Amino acid sequence: MSAHGLTYGPLGSSCVHLCVDMQRLFADPSPWATPWMPRVLPLIETLVERHAAQTIFTRFLPAQRPGQGVGTWKRYYDRWASMTMSELDPEMIELMPSLKRHSPPATVLDKHIYSPWFEGRLRNFLSQVRIDTLVITGGETDVCVLATVLGAIDFGYRVVLVTDALCSTSDATHDALLTVYHQRFAQQVETVEMETILSEWT
């Protein structure tokens, strides 16, 4: 741990805040509601307010209709037919209102699977603005955040995971993932609380 509270030093101009899927889709009364979201939302709001122009929001867009998708996604959307675009209120895919108001200047990138990397837009955007460090918040710790982190590691980004700004529906798998990051990915993932980010990213 450095004097800055971050293992590999302070954050600079080549850093962005990547906020994963903080959408109405995952808030009450949705069947996909993440109970921790109200707890982490104020922390994420504070970071976005300070660094709106350096924030990228991802949004998860479900399939258009039940049974659509490749391979196991067809089964997934048969199970979650009520959560397809044809059945949802269009407002459900929007960011939480307190975050949406910051875009612009924040950027919004949509995706149709857990990972934001396969469709290419995120990688292209980061390359254009010469980003090498990602401060990651959002949900869920053990699904879309996990896919985001692993892709970032593969592409060689410095990953700073904000542990008290992540939400999940499962305490057990959230805790297990944080243990994995500490024990298996320590060279590539730094785990800190929001207080450290707010004080060290100027």
Rank of each mutant, 00 (worst) to 15 (best):
P105D: 04
T137K: 01
L126V: 13
H174M: 14
K74M: 14
T163V: 12
E45K: 11
L47Q: 10
A27Y: 02
F155V: 00
F118L: 15
H51I: 03
I93K: 01
Q188R: 14
H4V: 13
K111H: 06
L177M: 15
W36M: 13
R65E: 15
T46Q: 15
G9W: 06
V145F: 10
L25P: 03
V143I: 15
I44L: 05
A27L: 04
D171C: 10
I153T: 07
R101G: 07
W73C: 08
T34E: 12
T141Q: 08
R59N: 01
I93N: 01
M85C: 10
T196C: 05
V160F: 03
V192F: 03
K100H: 01
S98Y: 01
R50D: 06
T55C: 04
L25V: 06
E190M: 10
G67C: 09
S168L: 09
S2M: 06
L47C: 07
T148G: 07
P97W: 04
E87Q: 14
R101C: 09
V160K: 02
L166N: 12
G71R: 12
A152E: 00
Y157H: 06
L134P: 09
W36N: 11
V135K: 02
P10H: 08
L198P: 03
H102Q: 01
E140S: 15
T58S: 08
E49W: 03
D132H: 11
H51V: 07
K74V: 12
W80F: 15
Y157L: 01
H174E: 14
T55H: 00
Q54A: 09
K111Y: 05
Y157G: 01
T169N: 11
I56S: 01
L18N: 08
F60Q: 04
G139N: 13
C167H: 03
L88S: 02
M1Q: 09
R65K: 13
P62W: 00
E49A: 15
G120F: 11
G138I: 08
P10F: 02
V108E: 01
E193V: 12
H182A: 15
V180I: 14
F185D: 07
P31I: 11
E94W: 00
P116M: 11
S13Q: 12
T7C: 02
K100N: 07
Q54C: 06
L6E: 04
R121M: 14
S98Q: 10
Q23N: 04
V159A: 04
R184L: 13
Q68K: 09
I93P: 00
K74Q: 15
R39V: 15
Q183E: 15
A81H: 13
S103G: 00
D164H: 10
T196E: 11
V40K: 03
D110V: 06
D78Q: 15
T163A: 12
H174T: 14
W117S: 06
S82A: 15
F155T: 02
W117T: 08
V189I: 14
E45V: 13
P105N: 08
R24Y: 06
F26V: 08
P31K: 05
P10A: 14
G12P: 00
D28R: 08
R59T: 06
L166R: 05
